[in-house]
Simulated assay, not measured.
Amino acid sequence: MRHLATAAAGIAAAILLTGCGAGDAGKTTAPTSKNGTSATSGSVGSFEVETALKNADPARYSAEITTETYAGSTLTVVMAGRMNFNGPAPTGKLTLKTSESVPEDQAFSMETILLEDASYTRTLDDDGAAGEWQRTGLDPASTGLADYGAYAQLLLGLGSKARKGPEEVDGVPAYRLSGSLTQDQLRTVDRRVYDRMRTEGTQEFACDVWVNESGRVVRFEQWLEVSGNSGRNVVKLKNFSDPVPVSAPK
Rank of each mutant, 00 (worst) to 15 (best):
G201D: 00
T6D: 06
N233Q: 14
F85S: 06
L114A: 12
Q106K: 14
G72Y: 07
K93C: 12
L124W: 05
N239A: 14
G10Q: 04
S160L: 09
V189I: 10
C20N: 15
V211T: 00
R198A: 11
R176Y: 07
G157F: 02
S142Y: 13
T199M: 12
K161D: 13
R187G: 12
G36K: 04
V218S: 08
D147L: 06
A206Y: 04
F108W: 05
V217N: 01
V209G: 01
D126I: 10
S160N: 11
E116F: 01
K93W: 10
V244K: 03
Y120C: 04
K161P: 10
P140N: 05
S109R: 14
G131C: 02
S241Q: 14
Y120S: 00
E48L: 12
S119I: 10
P140Q: 00
N229F: 08
K238T: 12
A63F: 07
E50G: 13
I15P: 06
S227V: 09
F220P: 11
Q153L: 11
M1T: 15
Y70H: 10
D242K: 07
P90M: 08
T37W: 10
T51C: 04
Q153G: 09
G228A: 06
A130Q: 12
S160Y: 03
P90C: 10
A162T: 02
V211E: 01
T32V: 15
W133E: 00
R198P: 11
T40P: 06
S46G: 03
L237Y: 09
S38N: 11
I15F: 11
S46A: 14
L224Q: 14
T29M: 14
L53H: 04
A152G: 03
A174E: 05
D57Q: 01
S214F: 04
G23P: 02
G179M: 00
A141K: 14
T69R: 05
D24R: 11
E200I: 03
T182E: 01
R187Y: 06
S73F: 09
T18W: 07
P140L: 03
N229Q: 15
Y194E: 01
T74L: 06
A71T: 13
G26S: 14
G92E: 06
W223M: 01
K236I: 08
R191H: 15
S180D: 04
L4A: 12
A30G: 11
E168M: 15
P103D: 03
G231T: 02
L4T: 08
G23D: 02
A150F: 03
F205K: 00
V246R: 00
S41W: 08
E221T: 09
P166W: 00
L237G: 10
Q106L: 10
G45Y: 07
S180R: 04
G171Y: 02
S142L: 15
L155G: 03
V102E: 00
A162Y: 00
